[in-house]
Amino acid sequence: MGSRESAAYVPVSRVRRRSARAQAPESPRAQARAPSAPRRDLVDWTQAQLADGRHDGRRRCHRAGQEGRNAGRHAFWRAQEAAASSARVLRGAAVQPDPAAAVEGPRRAGRASGDRAQNEAQGRQAPGVPGIRRPQGGGQGLLQELGIYLLSFDRPGYAESDAHPARTEKSIALDIAELADNLQLGPKFHLIGFSMGGEIMWSCLKYIPHRLAGVAILAPVGNYWWSGFPADVVEEAWYVQFPQDQRAVWVAHHLPWLTHWWNTQNLFHSSSVKGKNPIILSKEDTALSQKFLDRTYKEQVRQLGEHDSLHRDMMVGFGKWGWSPLEMENPFAGAGDEVKVHLWHGVEDLFVPVQLSRYISKKLPWVIYHELPTAGHLFPAADGMPDVIVRSLLLGDE
């Protein structure tokens, strides 16, 4: 009896495992009808393939972009080497009547020098003094009368002149001297600078005065942070500007790295000059503005983009200078009356308030100041005004 009891005892768990193994498998049709969980290894493999596809796509895009950048760099350096073998790409100050940029003219020293004889033979003038670009009206007669050869060129980042991200107010003056040497203009020459180019003339007076035979500064941009300006003068000039121009100038000085974004964003009004807002035109400027609108070269002026041209000008012009024009001594003190510096500004100028130039003229008695009561910013383009400026600079006419 004891043996039967021991033989009959089987744990329940063992019975259940045996019965599970003893069950017959379902038919293929039943298996097809029953929902089944996906195989884990198949899911992992599919996800891995998708991830590899995404990574491969990213790698291909990155590789294509890198190849494009490398090709661009190689083309750039090939062009640089070719240019270096023939002529230096110009960098320098603007001398044309454009409130924002330099305009047409010789781009490379070799080409400008080579074209001089051809220009003279064909009776053409080299573009240069504001408003005197082609043989029209009295400009050509004045050139022939005084035997003047005029030359203009593009500042860094404009038209065909290379961008120069590290440029300063000093580097531009040195570029002008180097350009004059490349063109064999002689030991001394006259300079005329307008607007941003006018501000550059102060740098030329400081760094290359020994190369200058005379300077005309036309409606120059002024830096509100130059030392030597009284607070009331700065405040008066500051509030002549429109609010959007105040903000643009403030950003260029305090947050230069934000200048490009500020002048291209659409959240706030950016610079009136950059945006060509007509509110910044005085009565006389409105009449003269068509001359600028009709320029055939205006699309070429900023072909390298606004960041390396106009915005870079703003960062340098309104940036932190290590010196101030108001603290300059007369660089021609030992030259008698041979070298003259003329400063011209219109009272109705809304691009560049006249108050800064007016105070500079009082602070620097060696500067001959011409204040035009009804003129705006574009006065150098007015009929007959180029002749007046040139005669004043070269002949001392008032």
Score class of each variant (00 low, 15 high):
F153L: 12
P156F: 01
I172W: 05
D181L: 11
T168N: 11
L150D: 05
S152E: 05
L150P: 07
P156D: 05
Q184S: 11
A177M: 11
R167G: 06
F194I: 01
G197A: 08
F189Y: 12
L174H: 14
D175C: 12
E169Y: 13
L146F: 01
A159E: 12
E145T: 03
E169F: 08
A166T: 08
R155S: 14
R155Y: 01
L179R: 04
Y158L: 13
E145K: 08
K170E: 15
I176Q: 09
L174S: 08
Y149H: 04
Q184K: 14
S195N: 04
A159G: 07
A166I: 00
A180E: 04
L185I: 04
L146R: 15
H164M: 08
L183A: 06
L179G: 02
F194W: 05
S161T: 04
G186M: 06
Q144N: 11
Y149Q: 06
A173H: 07
G197Y: 05
F189T: 07
P156G: 10
E160L: 12
G186V: 03
I148G: 07
I192K: 09
S195F: 01
L183T: 05
M196P: 14
K170R: 15
G147R: 09
S152L: 02
F153R: 13
S152K: 06
K188N: 10
A159T: 11
L183V: 04
S161Q: 03
A173N: 09
N182R: 13
L179N: 07
L146V: 08
K170N: 08
S161G: 05
E169M: 14
I148E: 05
R167F: 00
D154M: 10
F189L: 11
H190S: 12
Q144K: 10
Y149P: 02
P187V: 11
Q184E: 13
K170A: 14
A159W: 08
S152Y: 01
I148N: 09
